[in-house]
Amino acid sequence: MDHVQQWLQALNIDAIQCIVLILGVSEVLLARANNVWLYPTGIAATTLSIYSLFHAKLYAECLLHLYYIVMSIYGWWFWTTRRNNKPVEITFSTQRDWLITIGIVLGGWVVLYFFLILFTPSELPLWDSWVSCTAWAGMWLLARRKVENWLLLNISNAFAIPLLFHKELPLFAFLTLFLFIVACKGYYDWMKTAKKNMAIA
């Protein structure tokens, strides 16, 4: 047992990271199974993540995770009140959707960057703000059931993985890598569904 603790300490892995990894993987599996328990599981994982991210001085990531909590609470409520209603169909993004997405990314990047350099002791404000604003854009497209949400989320994931390793949060990085792989599969599945919807229309 002492050897395991020494190994975890050498890798800068604490109990919170281990719990977040377990909860994060569980959330994805519950989502795939279409189980409502994905929401409380996700809220618990996200809340614990904020604690670790704050101590790593990734303040934009903390704001992003607060947003995830709000969206999870909304999703939990929406699921339980409108579960039997017909869902919004999966479609490809329009030109207007892309303009709004680019606006969220660029506008969010600038606002977050200046917020971080002016009001926080952030060590990597440019990188931290980029990861968050691309995820915000991806979440907006996800809410609108657009195929390209997976692309934006994976841009965020791709930059988040080395950032998390750099900030000595290896289990968070591995969890993000897992989410990256899931998002690749999600993009492929949603693209097939969108093409099928277009053919029917």
Rank of each mutant, 00 (worst) to 15 (best):
Q5I: 04
Q5V: 05
Q5A: 13
Q6I: 03
Q6G: 15
Q6H: 07
W7K: 03
W7E: 05
W7A: 12
L8S: 01
L8V: 00
L8Q: 01
L8P: 01
L8K: 01
L8R: 02
Q9V: 01
Q9W: 00
Q9T: 00
A10T: 06
L11T: 03
L11G: 08
L11H: 13
L11N: 10
L11Q: 06
N12P: 03
N12T: 02
N12I: 00
N12Y: 03
I13P: 01
I13H: 02
D14K: 00
D14G: 08
A15W: 00
I16D: 01
I16R: 00
I16W: 01
I16Y: 00
Q17S: 04
Q17L: 04
Q17R: 01
C18Y: 00
C18E: 03
I19W: 02
I19L: 05
I19D: 01
I19V: 15
I19N: 04
V20A: 13
V20I: 10
V20N: 05
V20T: 07
L21R: 07
L21E: 08
L21P: 06
L21G: 10
L21F: 12
L21D: 06
L21A: 11
L21S: 07
L21W: 08
I22P: 06
I22V: 13
I22C: 14
I22L: 14
I22E: 08
I22W: 10
L23D: 10
L23N: 09
L23C: 14
G24W: 02
G24V: 03
G24D: 09
G24R: 02
V25F: 06
V25M: 06
V25Q: 07
V25W: 03
V25K: 04
V25G: 08
S26T: 14
S26C: 12
S26R: 08
S26M: 11
E27S: 11
E27K: 10
E27T: 15
V28R: 06
V28L: 10
L29Y: 12
L29K: 14
L29M: 15
L29I: 13
L29R: 12
L30H: 12
L30S: 12
L30T: 13
L30G: 15
A31Y: 11
A31H: 09
A31P: 09
A31G: 15
A31I: 09
R32C: 06
R32Y: 13
A33I: 07
A33V: 08
N34W: 03
N34A: 11
N35A: 07
N35K: 14
N35S: 11
N35V: 11
V36N: 09
V36S: 14
V36C: 12
V36I: 14
V36Y: 14
V36K: 09
V36F: 10
W37A: 15
W37R: 11
W37G: 13
W37K: 13
L38Q: 14
L38A: 14
Y39A: 13
P40L: 11
P40H: 10
P40D: 07
P40T: 05
T41H: 03
G42M: 04
G42T: 03
I43C: 09
I43A: 10
I43S: 13
I43N: 07
A44K: 04
A44S: 11
A44W: 05
A45D: 05
A45M: 10
T46C: 11
T46F: 09
T46D: 04
T47G: 15
T47Y: 10
T47K: 06
T47A: 15
T47C: 13
L48V: 03
L48P: 08
L48H: 08
L48F: 05
S49D: 07
S49N: 11
S49L: 09
S49F: 09
